[in-house]
Design a protein around this nucleic acid. Structure first.
Lengths: 110, 110
DNA sequence: TCTATTTATCGTAATATTGCAATATACAAA
DNA sequence: TTTGTATATTGCAATATTACGATAAATAGA
């Protein structure tokens, strides 16, 4: 097998799992961390910031872009990537809900 | 290759990527959703709640347990699973930080 | 003890992910 | 046009994940 049975789960469950999957690699966490640290679009030097070959970085950026977590625009010979706030907001809404329940329901466990 | 180069990233980046990976499947999101919905330990009927075979569910539970997101205790012939708040708190701390930066740095993007 | 029930593990097939060399593409500047 | 620079794509090998049938282990109750 090896293929996730997405059709049996709710749209939200699949959506959240996809966002988690997009962030389920330290290189992609590092990219997000870096984008937030420089607090701007990155135009050119992401590859130098990561301990991976250029095609690998390009692939990770593509996955983050497909998930909607970052967006890019062509800027001459370079590409500018930055955080896509809309998707992060959706992600935040789900997680805030989850964390909210966890924090109010403390100690009702075996 | 196929193996993540964890040694090149920070401990926090690897830790967060691992938590994301543990949640990067709709079945595991569904398990967490269900645990929160019933607001208690689940003793016995997780398998019936999911559209997957028993060995598959058992495997997903194991992954959530390995990641520290749930904990289980033997209760007669059944196993009781529940949310592990400590790990979720760590996860929340990281994400609250990320979301905080994103929400304060709006519109400084290309 | 025997049986039923519940959860875990093993083994395996199908599929997905990771990483990079080689190469392609796109554009700026000489 | 040619050269240099930056990013993307292709192709492939190594590894990981997903799913489940078969089976094991553990316990409760007859």
């Amino acid at each position: 097998m090896g293929a996730t049975k997405t059709e049996h789960f709710t749209a939200e469950q699949n959506e959240m799992a996809n966002l988690m999957k997009a962030l389920a690699h330290p290189a992609r966490i590092a990219i997000i961390d870096y984008l937030l640290k420089v607090n701007a679009c990155i135009c050119g030097d992401i590859v130098n910031e990561l301990p991976l070959a250029q095609p690998t970085v390009s692939q990770h950026l593509k996955e983050l872009k497909n998930a909607g977590l970052i967006k890019g625009s062509i800027e001459g010979t370079a590409i500018c990537y930055c955080i896509d706030e809309t998707t992060f907001l959706k992600f935040q809404n789900y997680l805030t809900h989850i964390f909210g329940i966890i924090n109010t329901n403390k100690n009702n466990c075996c």
